[in-house]
Every structure is written in structure tokens, then in C-alpha cells.
Design a protein around this nucleic acid. Structure first.
Length: 825
RNA sequence: GCCCAAGUGGCGGAAUUGGUAUACGCGGUGGACUUAAAAUCCGCUUCCUUUACCGGAUUAUGGGUUCGAGUCCCAUCUUGGGCACCA
């Protein structure tokens, strides 16, 4: 018998699979060989960014999860689509180009070739004919088409606004790409910069994106993150009449913040300029509003200051501007100044002071609040510090254990005029109705989510298919002129003009549309736009008539299982947004792109820290394969390492155990020493366990079950049938070894089924407890186990049981399902 | 601060519906084979007591419900993740 030589057999099978295009998917593959219908199954991982460093062990885990499921469903004779692609636009390739002069296009090609070669060595069951690459003009032509569809419907628009700007990468960033005030790519602190930018109007779908979360088979933590990100709050906007102080500046020097806020909320008549609009989720506490607070950037501030307060207010505003957003977030100590003016609480008619403070944010709600210190933590803190009145309007219920001075809960209204005695929850609606009657407010919903900023001032991205006429007005590039190709340039470096390197391609900039000379847009699209539709491209990746073929999409999509480890609120929100948009446009027959989302954990270095080049603790999967372990061991090890959705640390010793296990599988098959032993029980048990474990995605215990099976076959001696079952069950984890074994055994790879009857044992072991403590194990016939009295009398015969049961038992509990008898003595 | 998840041997982890806690693997240890080592094969390996059996303790800590709790409830501690002045 030859020794198990993974390198040899893996090369052999990879060649065979390549030649036979073994995993090519077709929507015509509807029936099994014996005529039963095949269900479709579409699985994908989040496609990788092919970095120069090649595959790392995290990719292997991610790809293997998809592969195990793909092969499992395939062996169960389903029609499986399992494609692969590359997310290739982005900063690393461009920064590499700036450093080395090698074009991003060239570097990307090299990296893809390397990635593909490495992925193939894992033995993945991929339909390689469907490979896609987002920086391929054949692909980004359709990204541009998608943009134009959004543009046509007004969901891609341009506006001037303050945006996050990374001074290192010299580009703006989406809110989703700013992590803790820092650039997600380079980690440098971001700044605000006012620029005219392109946006996608994701906020149009805020409600649906929120509501549909409940129907998704996604991890709860992702749903919560998306819910928080959308940040829907229901409440009311209320207008407060301003009493201008005599010395308050009447000639308005209202600064223009309307662009900043993306609306014309404050482009208003003089009547509205004498009012302050606030947003609140607690209109029921209106009677307790004892002052107003405006964000320092609020445009009305300039007209509220008086001669006495001007100096202080201006100093405060200056101080706030100096602070970075991070500093503002870090320092929670309340600060603020009085403007000098007052407003009227519309409910009480009382005159209340107007303050400014940086704990009120200009970007949320109305940039102004009514402060109810008795029932809001922050307002309470502020009122205490500046000695402002606190007025209770909600009575704390008597049974409440909340003993803080500031009560934010529910209760009955007091000090609230005609609303006294009402429940706060009812009063919310009633007060809003009253405000509407009075014409001074209305019910309103606000969201934390902002529109998706998609402009990037970078070279290596999908050009935005827009050109500008002489007046600077945008025009879409006609669809028949797509793709707008990325021009070749000498120097990829952005300058600080706020324009990408595309601006350096002078000839490319000129374009004629409808006989008119225009200048092309030089911004490129956020890479997330390119990945927002790729799951649909996979169904017809080479279609040159449409982004995706309607029949193919109807058959394959939506994606049944999508596996990733990142992008909870960016990519995973964007694909849902595009899906809903294209469903509205009639291009998709479903409104959610992914049925089941699996979110796998990371693999850390043996010391538990993140793997990184700088720490020198990176495990290279190719080294693991080439060291002699092979891909099957690597794959099986990464499935055995722990639950797929938890982080795990690499253990260099443990992988040896998996290799030993596969070697033992090999030995069982190839030492030509089959016995005639009856292993029906353990074989059927194992088939059942592995099948059920795979259905519930418990990959680590499925491998453990196979290990136990092999250990038992070593002891008992295997029948040929036992080894055939083993080879089939190994298929998802160790496909090369499985194929080699099945070939030698002359068997197909169809997933085995178990015989429930074979699982019934002749003699059953019953656990006997006395007062819940294990005291004996007795054996009884299957027939006897059905009879509680028989089990009891047998148990009481046991010497050890007798030691603990001195008199007649008070009670006995027999659980046949658990094979357990508990005697209460 | 708020929300969520988790805490089980020396280590990674298992226990699917409240029913034998510690499966499987690593590490350790003893033996077989070998001149020897590696590889391989066969044992043992939660802790305490014990040559062994028997027994006792144990799933972060403290209570509770139950015939029976790693699993359910309450409180506390620790770790990880998310959100973080969002009115």
C-alpha cells in the first residue's frame, strides 16, 4: 500500500476537474440521472480583493465554508451555482502604482492570476467559466449602466456639502467608511471638506430596508447593526416662536448651511425666521421644555445674539470649530452659552431662554432641541450646570425602581394642562394632534442614515458616466456609448485640486453628446458600487446585452447562502438597497438579494493576536499545503478549528491531528483488507450525524463524527460499504481524498442516506440516577426499555442503586427518549 | 453609559428539546514495534481521595425554579463585539 500522498492526488484531481469543467452550472440541469427534479442552490462568498500578498488563511476559511456546502448540496444532487470573482478597484492597487509605476491594470492582472492559481490549489468546486472582475470593462460597463438607471430616477444626484475627506488618500469617504473618526483604509484622521459630490439616495428606501430585516435569515448582530445604522426615530417637529431681544441683530447675517444639510429647511420666509424648529421623540414632555438648545452651527444663531452676548457666543462658536469631531465626541462635559434671546413654549406660553451647545448636532433632526431636563439625561446635566429650571411633567410610577432625579420612562402626565393624568404613551399622539391643529408642529420621522456618497477623487475606479456642458450642468453618457473606459495616464497621483488623475487625460476629457462638446466627470465610483450588483452578474457573466439575463436571474437568484466576515453596514446594506431599486424598476423579481447570510469568524495567529505582516505572525496557506499536508488537510482543519461563526486561533499542532485522521481514512481504503463485520449501526449513525451537522452548519462536529467513525472502524475492521460511506461523507471537506477513494472503490459520490431501522439497538443502556445523581448503568432489551416497571425493577436489583435507595422510592421518573431513570429516594 | 454575545480540563472545543458534563482533536504520559529515532499502532489523561474499586467536588461567582440545570430565572464579576451626546 502506498502512503497517503496528498500533493500527488490533489494535483491529479485538480487537473481532472479543470478538464471536465466539473462544476459548470447550468439552468437546464433540472433533473437527476434517474429523473427526479433538482432544486437550485446558489451560494457565494464575498468575493475577495486580490492583494499582492495572495491568499491568507482567512480566505481559506471563508471559501471552504462555501465549498463544503456547495459540495454537500451537489452530492445531494441539487443544481448548484458556486461562482467566483474579484473585487479589483481600490486604493491598494493605485497606491502600489504610484510607488512602483506599474499600472493598476497590470498589477491587478498579476494579482488575479496569482489568486486564481492559489484558489485552484484548494480544490474549490467553482464554476470557473463565470469568473468576474469588477475592473474589467465588460463588467464596469454595466456598473455604469446601473448608475444611469439610478440617475434617471433621480436617485443619483449631485450636491455641494461638507464631507469626510482623507488628507492622506486625498479622497472623500462615505459615512460607512469612517471608523471612529478615522479613514478605514489608511487609519488617518479624517477632515471635513466642502465639495460638490455625487450621492445615491439610499434614504428613499430607509423604511423598507429597516422593515424587511425581520424577514431575513441573517445573524442577529448584523440586523441590529443595520437597524442602528438606519436609526429611525419617530417623533414630532415643533416650532417655537422667537422673542427677539431689543438688541438682537435684526438684519440677518444668516450663514448658508442649507447646502451642508442637503435641504432647504432654512431657506425661509421672514415669518419662519422668527421661529425655531426642533425635533423631539417625546412630544408628550412639551410642557416640561424649559429652554431651547441650538447647535453652534445653526443659521439662526447670528440673529439671536445680543450686544451683551455676542462676544461670548462668537468665542464659543470659534472654540467649537477648532475642536475636531473626535474631540467633541470624547469630551462629554456639557458646555454652552446663552444667546440672549427667548422663545415661547407653545404649550405653556412661558418665556424660555435659547442657548447654544455642542451636544446638539447640526446634522441630525433640526439641529435644535427643546430641552426637557426633568426627563432627559443630557438636558438634565446641562440644566444643572447652568442653573436652568427643571419641571417635572411625567410622574414616576410608584413601583418604579428608577431612583435617579431625571426620569426618562413612562408614566402619567402632570403639570401639563388639559393633558394631566394621561399616559405618556397616549399623550404623544394627542399632543402631536394638538400641535397640528394649532399649525405649529407635526408628526415626523427622522433617520441617522445619510445618503451614500459615491464620488471618489481617485484614478483606479469605475468612471462615473456623466459629462458637463458649458454651464456645468450634468448630462448622462448615452447607454450606447458605454463603457466609459478608464484613460491611460502617466501619473496616477491625485493632486490636492480635489480632482482625480483622470483630469490629466486631456483628450479623454472631451466628449460630444448630441452634437454638444462636453467635459467628462473625473470622479470615479466608490468600489462598493461595483460590488452592489455582482451577485446578479454571476448568473449571466458574459451577457453583452444586459447587466443580467432575466431568465437566468429568475432561475438562480436570489442568492441562497452568502458567506462573509465583514461589511455589516456598508456592502450588506448597499446590495439590499440596489435590490429594492432594481425590483422597483422591473429588473429583479425579488426584493432581498440574500436569503441566508453566514458571517464567519476570523482566524488569528497562534498567540491570539491578529495576523499581520508587521508582527511577522502570518500563516501562509500555500506553505501549509506545500509542507506536505495538502489542501484537504488545510480545509478539514479550518472546518474543525471551531464553530464557523466564532474567531479561532491557528494551532500548528492541531493541524497534524487532522492530517493523521485523513491518513487513517486513506489506510482504511487502500490496505485492501476489508472484513465482513457488521458495522451497520455505527455507519448509519455516522451518516445521520454528519448529514444533520452539515444542515445545521456545525462543521466542526461533523468532522469529529467522522473521526469517531474512523476510530471505530479501526477497532472493528471495515466492510467495503463502510469505507464507501466514509469516502462520500469526506467529499465536502477533503474532496481530493474522497475522489481518490471513491475511484478505487468503484463508487459514485451521491450522498449516502441512513436507515432509521438500523439505528435501533437490541440491548439498551439505561442510566439510573438516584436523586438526580448517576449511580448505575443497566442494560435491558429494546422491548424491556419500553416498559417503565421492567426498567425500575431491573434498576433496583443493582447493588449500587440499593446502597442509595434504602426504602421504597418516593417517586420515579423515566424518560425513555433520554434512556434515563431517576429514582427519588 | 446603552445594547448584544460569551465564560466548560493544561489548550481548541462537544453536549441539537431541561436528562450520563468534559465527545473529537491538541498537549502530556505509559506501552508495542525498532539497535535507536521518526512514523505507526494500543492504553491512560477534569480535580481531590485511592494501587484499584467505591466515593466526593466541578461548567465565572452567589442565589432560585425542578425529580433532574452547562442549558431556564434573578443578582454580581470578567471578556469580546456593536452603538455612543441621534433629542
Amino acid at each position: 500500500m502506498d502512503k497517503y500522498d496528498p500533493i500527488k492526488i490533489e494535483e491529479k484531481w485538480q487537473k481532472i476537474w479543470e478538464k471536465e469543467q466539473a462544476f459548470k452550472a447550468s439552468e437546464d440541469n433540472l433533473k437527476t440521472a434517474d429523473g427526479r427534479p433538482r432544486a437550485k442552490m446558489y451560494l457565494a462568498e464575498m468575493f475577495p480583493y486580490p492583494s499582492g500578498a495572495g491568499l491568507h488563511v482567512g480566505h481559506v476559511r471563508n471559501f471552504t465554508i462555501v465549498d463544503v456546502l456547495a459540495r454537500f448540496y451537489r452530492q445531494q444532487e441539487m443544481n448548484v451555482l458556486r461562482p467566483f470573482g474579484y473585487d479589483t478597484f481600490g486604493l491598494p492597487a493605485e497606491n502600489y502604482a504610484i510607488k512602483t509605476g506599474i499600472s493598476p491594470k497590470e498589477a491587478t492582472k498579476t494579482n488575479i492570476d496569482n489568486f486564481r492559481k492559489q484558489a485552484k490549489r484548494l480544490g474549490l468546486a467553482i464554476d470557473w467559466s463565470r469568473e468576474i472582475n469588477t475592473s474589467d470593462p465588460e463588467y464596469y460597463r454595466w456598473t455604469q449602466w446601473c448608475f444611469l438607471q439610478l440617475y434617471k430616477k433621480g436617485l443619483a444626484y449631485r450636491k455641494e456639502s461638507e464631507q469626510w475627506w482623507c488628507p492622506v488618500d486625498q479622497t472623500v469617504l462615505a459615512n460607512e467608511q469612517v471608523e471612529g473618526g478615522k479613514c478605514w483604509r489608511c487609519g488617518h484622521e479624517v477632515e471635513k471638506k466642502k465639495m460638490k459630490q455625487w450621492f445615491f439616495k439610499i434614504t428613499d428606501y430607509a423604511d423598507e430596508l429597516l422593515d424587511d430585516l425581520s424577514s431575513l435569515d441573517w445573524p442577529e448582530k448584523i440586523k441590529v447593526m443595520q437597524k442602528n445604522w438606519i436609526g429611525r426615530s419617530e417623533g414630532a417637529e415643533i416650532r417655537f416662536q422667537i422673542i427677539f431681544s431689543d438688541t438682537a441683530e435684526k438684519s440677518r447675517h444668516v450663514r448658508d448651511f442649507s447646502a451642508e444639510l442637503g435641504s432647504s429647511r432654512w431657506d425661509s420666509s421672514s415669518e419662519e425666521e422668527s421661529q425655531i424648529c426642533v425635533f423631539t421623540t417625546r412630544p408628550d414632555t412639551l410642557f416640561g421644555a424649559t429652554f431651547l438648545v441650538l447647535a453652534p452651527e445653526h443659521p439662526l444663531v447670528a440673529s439671536l445674539v445680543t450686544d451683551e452676548t455676542r462676544e461670548k457666543v462668537e468665542a464659543y462658536i470659534k472654540e467649537t470649530q477648532k475642536k475636531s469631531d473626535i474631540e467633541r465626541q470624547e469630551n462629554k462635559e456639557k458646555t454652552g452659552v446663552f444667546t440672549g434671546s427667548y422663545a415661547i413654549n407653545p404649550a405653556t406660553g412661558e418665556k424660555i431662554p435659547i442657548w447654544i451647545a455642542d451636544y446638539v448636532l447640526i446634522g441630525y433632526g433640526e439641529g435644535a432641541i427643546m430641552a426637557v431636563p426633568a426627563h432627559d439625561e443630557r438636558d438634565y446635566e446641562f440644566a444643572k450646570k447652568f442653573d436652568l429650571p427643571i419641571k417635572t411633567v411625567i410622574e414616576k410610577p410608584e413601583n418604579s425602581d428608577d431612583d435617579s432625579e431625571c426620569y426618562g420612562g413612562e408614566g402619567k402626565l402632570v403639570n401639563s394642562g388639559e393633558f394631566n393624568g394621561r399616559d405618556a404613551s397616549d399623550a404623544r399622539e394627542q399632543i402631536v394632534a394638538w400641535l397640528e391643529e394649532q399649525g405649529i408642529g407635526k408628526g415626523k420621522v427622522t433617520y441617522k442614515m445619510r445618503d451614500w456618497l459615491i464620488s471618489r477623487q481617485r484614478y483606479w475606479g469605475c468612471p462615473i458616466p456623466i459629462a458637463y456642458d458649458k454651464n456645468g450642468d450634468p448630462h448622462p453618457i448615452p447607454e450606447d456609448q458605454l463603457p466609459v473606459l478608464i484613460p491611460e495616464v502617466e501619473d496616477y497621483k491625485p493632486d490636492n485640486s480635489g480632482r482625480s488623475a483622470l483630469a490629466k487625460a486631456k483628450d479623454w476629457l472631451k466628449v460630444t453628446i448630441d452634437g454638444e462638446e462636453m467635459t467628462r466627470e473625473t470622479d470615479t465610483l466608490d468600489g462598493y458600487a461595483c460590488s452592489s450588483w455582482y451577485l446578479w452578474r454571476y448568473v449571466s457573466p458574459h451577457d453583452n446585452q444586459s447587466a443580467w439575463n432575466k431568465d437566468a436571474i429568475k432561475y438562480w437568484a436570489p442568492t441562497d447562502i452568502y458567506v462573509g466576515a465583514d461589511h455589516a453596514v456598508a456592502h450588506l446594506l448597499y446590495i439590499r438597497f440596489w435590490c429594492k431599486f432594481f425590483a422597483d424598476e422591473g429588473y429583479l423579481p425579488f426584493r432581498e438579494p440574500v436569503k441566508t447570510l453566514l458571517y464567519n469568524g476570523y482566524i488569528n495567529a497562534p498567540d491570539g493576536r491578529k495576523m499581520s505582516k508587521s508582527k511577522g505572525n502570518v500563516i501562509d496557506p500555500l506553505d501549509v499545503i506545500n509542507s506536505g499536508y495538502g489542501a484537504d488537510t488545510l480545509r478539514t482543519y479550518e472546518m474543525f478549528i471551531g464553530p464557523y461563526d466564532q474567531d479561532a486561533s491557528w494551532d500548528t499542532n492541531s493541524i497534524g491531528g487532522v492530517y493523521r485522521f485523513l491518513s487513517r481514512c486513506w489506510t482504511l481504503c487502500f490496505n485492501n483488507n476489508f472484513s465482513k463485520n457488521d458495522n451497520n449501526l455505527i455507519r448509519n449513525k455516522t451518516i445521520k450525524r454528519v448529514t444533520q451537522d452539515l444542515h445545521r452548519r456545525s462543521f466542526n462536529t461533523a468532522v469529529a463524527a467522522l473521526m469517531e467513525y474512523v476510530n471505530e472502524l479501526y477497532k472493528a475492521g471495515p466492510e467495503k460499504e463502510d469505507v464507501i460511506a466514509l469516502a462520500k461523507l469526506l467529499g465536502p471537506f477533503a474532496p481530493h481524498l474522497s475522489a481518490e477513494m471513491l475511484e478505487s472503490l468503484g463508487a459514485d459520490d451521491v450522498w449516502p442516506t441512513w436507515d432509521e431501522a438500523a439505528l435501533i439497538e437490541d440491548e439498551i443502556e439505561i442510566v439510573v440516577q438516584v436523586n438526580g445523581k448517576l449511580r448505575a448503568k443497566i442494560k435491558i432489551s429494546a422491548e424491556g426499555a419500553k416498559n417503565q416497571a421492567a426498567v425500575e425493577s431491573k434498576a433496583l436489583e443493582d447493588e449500587n442503586v440499593q446502597k442509595f435507595v434504602k426504602s421504597t422510592p418516593k417517586k420515579t421518573i423515566y424518560v425513555e427518549r433520554a434512556k434515563l431513570l431517576n429514582i427519588v429516594a
